[in-house]
Every structure is written in C-alpha cells, then in structure tokens.
Write a protein that binds this DNA or RNA. Structure first.
Length: 124
DNA sequence: CGTGTGACTGACC
DNA sequence: AGGTCAGCCACAC
C-alpha cells in the first residue's frame, strides 16, 4: 500500500492548530521523513480521504505561499478556509513569522503531550 | 524498467 | 524581491 508514511504524515498534519500553518518540509520532518520529502507530504494530504477532515489547508510551502496552482478550485478553497480561521492571506501568501506553528514551542508553553487548543478557553 | 513530473526545499545569484 | 539549480521520491506513462 501507499504506506506507513502517509499515516504518519496524516497524524502530524492533524496536529496543526486552527489559525496556524506548517510547511510541507516541517510536516515531513515531524513525520520522520526529513529527506524523503516534502513532496510526499503534498501527495499524502492530497490522497487523504475527506472523511478524515485533515486540515490540509494549514499546509503551505516554506515561503508561506500556497503551493497549489493559483486559479484552481482547491487554491481558492484553501484561501477561504484559512481566512475563515483568521489567517490573513494576501495574493496567495501569508506571513510565516506570524502564523507558523511551532510544536516545540507549544510543548514548552503548554507542557509535553498537551496541545494548545484555542477553543478550550484559557480565556484570557 | 527508464523518464518525466510535482500541493517542496535550501542554496546561489 | 525574483529566477535558477540540484537533490528528493512516489507515481503515471
């Protein structure tokens, strides 16, 4: 089958918090595929069953740009989904310094194993 | 089974 | 900021 790798990629991608993004390379690395490829991440998320509700839209390239060709339906969909989460997307691009998800930082702030859940009131 | 390709990336210029 | 180049790797032909 397509692989154990896909599974790992899906698992990692699913961890990206709402309103944040990760790069293909970042997910690849987290999935334990440092050199095997960011490219594989693109394939994996594209092949993910819709029932899985994978947050594929939270994955952009290392430059903070949407990797899907502009003008396509999926590109527009990704922009739409990101904006719905409060991410400011301009010209198919966003600010990585601002929205990049940093799992290690998450761990430092929220504790090992704990995930930052924006919805679960920590309420200011 | 060889080639081309891409929802990538980092290094250079 | 933008263009080119060489690695990468699974997949379609």
């Amino acid at each position: 089958m397509s692989g154990e790798s896909y599974k790992r990629i899906w698992e990692q991608a699913a961890l990206i918090p709402e309103g944040m993004v990760a790069s293909y390379g970042q997910i690849a690395k987290l999935a334990g595929l440092p050199r095997r490829g960011a490219r594989m991440v693109g394939r994996a998320v594209g092949a993910a069953p819709s029932e899985m509700q994978l947050p594929w839209h939270r994955i952009v390239n290392a430059q903070g740009k949407i990797a899907i060709p502009e003008g396509t339906r999926r590109h527009a969909q990704q922009v739409k989904l990101l904006r719905a989460e409060g991410v400011d997307v301009k010209k198919g691009q966003l600010d990585m310094d601002r929205y990049r998800w940093d799992p290690t930082l998450d761990e430092l702030v929220w504790g090992p194993g704990r995930l930052h859940d924006p919805g679960a009131d920590s309420s200011a």
